[in-house]
Simulated assay, not measured.
Amino acid sequence: MTIDPRVQSEDQLRADLAWLRDIQDMPGVLETFVAGHAPRLFALVEQDLGLLEDAVFGWGLQFDDHAFVVVRGGTSSMSCSSADDAVTVLGVAGRNLRLVWHTPSADSTPGRVLKRRRVIR
């Protein structure tokens, strides 16, 4: 009889799965995993000399292999190969769009508890 070392007993498999679950429940483990795989957030800002302020035309997520954009108000969405391509495609209608990458502040880091301050004036 030959024993295959790749096959574990059911008890050992349950023990391994319990250990894996315990590791995932440790503070910061899943947050670190997600942060390493999270898409980058960007905005498409419409710059118009006639407007007093720039306006966010749409928001997007840049994944490893594509980008997904939702236009302001949710009126349309699109998937393209990159954030730069989204600027090109959506700018065809004569819009002056600028790609702005969002960098979250340290205060908005997942897993970090923010302290509230009471301001009395």
Score class of each variant (00 low, 15 high):
residue 31 E to Y: 03
residue 114 L to C: 08
residue 53 E to A: 12
residue 22 D to Y: 02
residue 15 A to H: 04
residue 42 F to C: 03
residue 85 D to G: 11
residue 35 A to T: 01
residue 67 A to R: 09
residue 25 D to I: 01
residue 47 Q to K: 14
residue 105 S to T: 15
residue 15 A to N: 08
residue 76 S to P: 09
residue 39 P to Y: 06
residue 54 D to V: 13
residue 49 L to C: 14
residue 13 L to Y: 08
residue 1 M to E: 05
residue 42 F to L: 03
residue 98 R to T: 06
residue 14 R to N: 07
residue 79 S to C: 08
residue 73 G to E: 13
residue 75 T to D: 01
residue 21 R to M: 13
residue 121 R to L: 13
residue 21 R to P: 03
residue 93 A to L: 15
residue 80 C to A: 14
residue 60 G to F: 07
residue 55 A to N: 10
residue 25 D to H: 00
residue 98 R to E: 09
residue 79 S to H: 00
residue 119 V to K: 11
residue 11 D to A: 15
residue 117 R to H: 13
residue 27 P to M: 02
residue 36 G to E: 02
residue 72 R to N: 05
residue 19 W to N: 09
residue 108 S to W: 08
residue 111 G to C: 03
residue 42 F to I: 04
residue 51 L to D: 14
residue 100 V to K: 04
residue 25 D to F: 02
residue 29 V to Q: 00
residue 87 V to K: 02
residue 9 S to R: 15
residue 102 H to P: 11
residue 47 Q to I: 15
residue 94 G to K: 09
residue 87 V to H: 01
residue 75 T to L: 09
residue 36 G to W: 01
residue 46 E to P: 12
residue 33 F to I: 13
residue 45 V to R: 10
residue 89 V to I: 14
residue 109 T to S: 10
residue 26 M to H: 10
residue 65 D to N: 10
residue 74 G to K: 08
residue 13 L to T: 02
residue 42 F to Y: 01
residue 90 L to K: 01
residue 118 R to P: 09
residue 82 S to I: 02
residue 81 S to D: 10
residue 96 N to G: 11
residue 42 F to P: 01
residue 13 L to D: 05
residue 10 E to H: 11
residue 4 D to F: 01
residue 120 I to A: 12
residue 30 L to Q: 07
residue 55 A to T: 11
residue 101 W to A: 03
residue 57 F to K: 00
residue 92 V to E: 12
residue 108 S to N: 06
residue 86 A to W: 00
residue 117 R to M: 09
residue 71 V to G: 07
residue 28 G to S: 05
residue 48 D to T: 15
residue 25 D to C: 00
residue 14 R to S: 06
residue 109 T to D: 09
residue 97 L to V: 04
residue 118 R to A: 15
residue 7 V to W: 09
residue 46 E to N: 05
residue 54 D to Q: 07
residue 18 A to E: 04
residue 31 E to W: 04
residue 57 F to C: 00
residue 77 S to M: 09
residue 3 I to E: 03
residue 22 D to H: 00
residue 68 F to E: 14
residue 40 R to E: 03
residue 94 G to N: 08
residue 8 Q to T: 14
residue 75 T to H: 11
residue 34 V to K: 13
residue 7 V to P: 05
residue 73 G to V: 11
residue 119 V to G: 03
residue 100 V to C: 11
residue 66 H to E: 15
residue 28 G to H: 05
residue 19 W to R: 08
residue 97 L to Y: 06
residue 112 R to N: 12
residue 71 V to K: 10
residue 45 V to N: 07
residue 55 A to I: 14
residue 7 V to H: 05
residue 49 L to F: 14
residue 70 V to L: 14
residue 42 F to K: 05
residue 92 V to Q: 13
residue 10 E to M: 10
residue 116 R to W: 13
residue 22 D to T: 06
residue 55 A to P: 04
residue 113 V to Q: 06
residue 65 D to V: 07
residue 77 S to I: 01
residue 87 V to A: 01
residue 109 T to A: 05
residue 80 C to W: 10
residue 108 S to K: 07
residue 99 L to P: 03
residue 85 D to S: 04
